[in-house]
């Protein structure tokens, strides 16, 4: 399996179907940037392919490819996060689509595009508020972010609710103080 520059597995073998895989890969990497979750987490839901299909089925032809192309043109490296905002999220056509992709990953739900967007770029009978699938509901990233589990699924077990929640993973945006360095205390013998 090949890996991208950060070591995330990339599912893009060469040969027949490579174009499709290239699209799927771009969609996955765009999703990483938009959701703040790594490729492993996203692939782990098993839903990347379904979500790509949902977007393809609902959007007028070419719109998703435009979005993926815009993403592919973004500068590499640290500027990417900022560039996605100005190039994609602020774009009248691509912004609402990108935000829908975020909502779909977090909620498992497709959200009807704004009326303004629909009249400018086209409508689809599938463009309604709807849960993509039971699996999508259960795999919503919102539950992971909450340090919880989807209501009615993936239960944590008897009595788990009595324990303190897991400390959320540190994130630069959370304004959390930096983790203090571990200072070995005398007597622990961990360090000499």
């Amino acid at each position: 399996m090949s890996r991208d520059e950060r070591g995330v597995p990339v599912t893009s073998p060469s040969g027949p179907g490579a174009a499709t895989d290239k699209r799927a890969d771009l969609f996955l990497r765009l999703s990483e940037l938009l959701t703040g979750f790594g490729g492993i987490d996203l692939l782990g839901t098993g839903l990347a392919g379904s979500y790509l299909r949902v977007v393809d089925d609902i959007l007028p032809p070419g719109v998703l490819d435009e979005l993926l192309a815009a993403f592919a043109r973004l500068p590499a490296g640290l500027d990417r996060g900022a560039a996605v905002k100005t190039t994609i999220l602020a774009n009248r056509k691509l912004g609402p689509v990108a935000r829908n992709v975020i909502l779909m990953w977090y909620r498992g739900t497709w959200t009807r595009l704004p009326d303004e967007w629909r009249s400018a770029y086209g409508t689809s009978p599938l463009d309604t508020d709807h849960v993509v699938s039971a699996e999508a509901y259960r795999s919503g990233l919102q539950w992971v972010a909450a340090g919880a589990h989807p209501a009615g699924a993936l239960q944590q077990g008897y009595g788990a609710w009595a324990s303190a929640p897991n400390e959320p993973a540190r994130s630069p945006a959370a304004n959390a103080p930096p983790t203090p360095p571990l200072i070995p205390t005398a007597g622990q013998g961990a360090h000499k």
Binding site: L34, G36, K85, Y106, Q142, A145, A146
Partner: peptide, 21 residues
């Protein structure tokens, strides 16, 4: 967070992690 506050990416995730629980 996404539609009104315009959050995305790590900032969005951090916001949800710090409020939902």
């Amino acid at each position: 967070a996404v539609q009104r506050q315009g959050l995305y990416g790590k900032e969005l995730r951090g916001h949800l992690q710090s409020t939902l629980p």
